[in-house]
Design a protein around this nucleic acid. Structure first.
Length: 516
RNA sequence: GCCCCGUUCGUCUAGGGGUCUAGGACGGCGCCCUUUCACGGCGUUAACACGGGUUCAAAUCCCGUACGGGGUACCA
């Protein structure tokens, strides 16, 4: 019933940063919460920074996270195209409209002339050169040139840009849903370029035109856009669209773990953690240098729900003491008012904790499916059922998906590595007959199931006056080679009678050899 | 430099004038459980940046300072 429309508008200049994923998430949550529409728009107006594959990466990332837009690039919808480079004419038409109504003007200054003006100002002691009301009166603009001259330059195909004519001596105020009232004095706003000389619009123009045309009701974006929002409000006014101007919400930034500035792609390598949802480049498209490639949350072995939960709480909090939220619960609980104003440091320990929580709670079969490729890569050939059982035994002690198979090699094949130090501590020259008797006792068990096996071992120990400390470590070492891992009886059940017997026998021989 | 935004435990945060001797979570530490490693349970550690106001009463409102962050492109 709601006609709320939000958009996520990334620039395809590379992999989608985790901060961008959070922005997308908040937009998604807000849309879902209000039964609205979540639009994906690709802001590729900078031809020079376009990176092939980035758009696919964005879509795949959102898909992996489970926060797919409901309209937009790659999905379709009533306002197509959703790629700004394909909407070029629209922007020029609108920019011209602004020139016609006196809100914008042509500027014919070359980059060199601009640079000259800049250094001239600097030489005169003015280090904050700004293309403003004073400036536009002395540069080559349609405000200083005669109409004929302007037409002549245009006809001659001279390069030009169209700039916003910022009104003088006004205060521009708007209400940010997260920060409250924010205002700027127009004297500190420069005459932003709206149309670049290559015929493409700048972000400022394209974003306003598209948000209006696409009937966006709420703009939820990063804090880095706050300073230019004054210009954006001016643009809505210049177009006469102020009545339908979207509501703005500027999100706090995600900061580096050490708090020194916003999290950047370099910080992944620097702090040994992922800062992108997926690895980049994807699928072996090796167009980047090694320095520009990163491992993503997915490849680290994070579950998407954990990443989402973690991200949601980086700058937002429901105000209750619940920490674990499914996507559906987040949709329900989300509200812009509860987003905090200050930047949030990227807390990797918290991210790991979330993943652990989701791993523990996940169904064995689901984990098995996730881990199947990893197991196969290691050459393990097991049934889905067996893999699920391994996951069941391991998930309580794993932080990442790969832990499930990487720390359980002995559940897939013979023990390869023995903890000799502990063997020396637990195995005695006279142990063998005792453990062989125990093995016989176990072998004779009618059901090779954890609970009865436990009973059997306990009975054996009681019978012989043995303490658990004398028996259990040896059994564990025999079956796993290590002192870490799942419960001994559970491992026996998983391995089954034959394999258990085989391992015990081999281990006892190995232990004796160690003694020699 | 200038403009904008921000500032509660180490970190993420709750708090929206009295119920705050400031709550939860992560991390750390300790204990219990378990003669494995974990998980789990219990406990503990630790914060309202500073200075002025306003008020009977301020973590909560206002101002200033300090500090932090963002912006300052024909990049988004």
């Amino acid at each position: 019933m709601s006609n709320i429309r939000v958009r996520f508008a990334p620039s395809p200049t590379g992999a989608l940063h985790i901060g961008g994923v959070r922005t997308a998430l908040y937009n998604y949550l807000f849309a879902k919460k209000h039964g609205g529409t979540f639009v994906l728009r690709i802001e590729d107006t900078d031809q020079g920074r376009y990176v092939p594959g980035a758009e696919e990466y964005i879509l795949e990332s959102l898909g992996w996270c489970g926060i797919m837009p409901t309209e937009g690039q790659g999905i379709g919808g009533p306002h197509a195209p959703y790629r700004q480079s394909e909407r070029k004419e629209t922007y020029l038409k609108h920019a011209l409209e602004l020139v016609a109504n006196g809100s914008a003007y042509y500027a014919f200054d070359t980059p060199e002339e601009l640079e000259a003006a800049r250094s001239e100002a600097a030489a005169a002691g003015n280090h904050n050169f700004k293309y403003d009301a004073t400036c536009r009166q002395v540069m080559k603009t349609s405000l200083t040139l005669s109409a004929d001259e302007v037409q002549r330059l245009l006809d001659a195909g001279e390069h030009y840009v169209i700039r916003l004519k910022v009104p003088e001596n006004e205060v521009v105020t708007f209400t940010d849903l997260i920060r409250g009232e924010v205002s700027f004095h127009t004297s500190e706003l420069d005459d932003k370029v709206l149309m670049k000389s290559d015929g493409m619009p700048t972000y400022h123009l394209a974003n306003i035109v598209d948000d209006h045309l696409m009937e966006i009701t709420h703009v939820i974006r990063g804090e880095e856009w706050l300073p230019s929002t004054g210009h954006h409000v001016l643009l809505y006014r210049a177009f006469g669209w102020e009545a339908t101007m979207p509501q703005f919400s500027h999100l706090p930034l995600i900061l580096r773990p050490d708090g020194k500035g916003k999290l950047s792609k370099r910080d992944g390598a620097k702090f040994g953690m992922p800062v992108f949802p997926l690895s980049w480049p994807q699928g072996g498209k090796k167009t980047e240098t090694a320095e520009d490639s990163f491992e993503g949350f997915r490849e680290f072995g994070f579950l998407p729900q954990a990443v989402i939960n973690f991200l949601a709480f980086l700058g937002w909090n429901p105000g209750t003491e619940q920490e674990i939220f499914s996507l559906e619960e987040l949709c329900e609980a989300f509200s812009l008012e509860k987003i905090s104003k200050s930047g949030a440091r990227f807390d990797y320990d918290k991210a790991k904790w979330y993943n652990q929580q989701y791993l523990h709670a996940a169904a064995d079969a689901d984990l098995a499916a996730h881990v199947r490729p990893l197991a196969e890569a290691k050459g393990y050939q097991v049934s889905d059922e067996y893999l699920a059982k391994v996951c069941h035994l391991m998930k309580g002690r794993a932080t990442f998906l790969p832990d499930l198979v990487e720390q359980s090699a002995y559940l897939f094949g013979d023990v390869q590595v023995f903890d000799n130090e502990n063997i020396a501590k637990r195995w005695k020259p006279e142990s063998r007959p005792v453990f062989e008797a125990l093995a016989e006792h176990l072998k004779a068990q009618p059901a090779f199931v954890a609970a009865p096996l436990e009973e059997a071992v306990k009975a054996f120990m009681a019978d012989r006056g043995l303490k658990p400390g004398e028996v259990m470590p040896v059994l564990r070492l025999s079956l796993a080679g290590t002192m870490q891992g799942p419960g001994v009886y559970e491992m026996m059940e998983l391995l089954g009678n034959d394999r258990t017997m085989d391992r015990l026998e081999k281990a006892f021989g190995y232990f004796d050899a160690q003694m020699a």
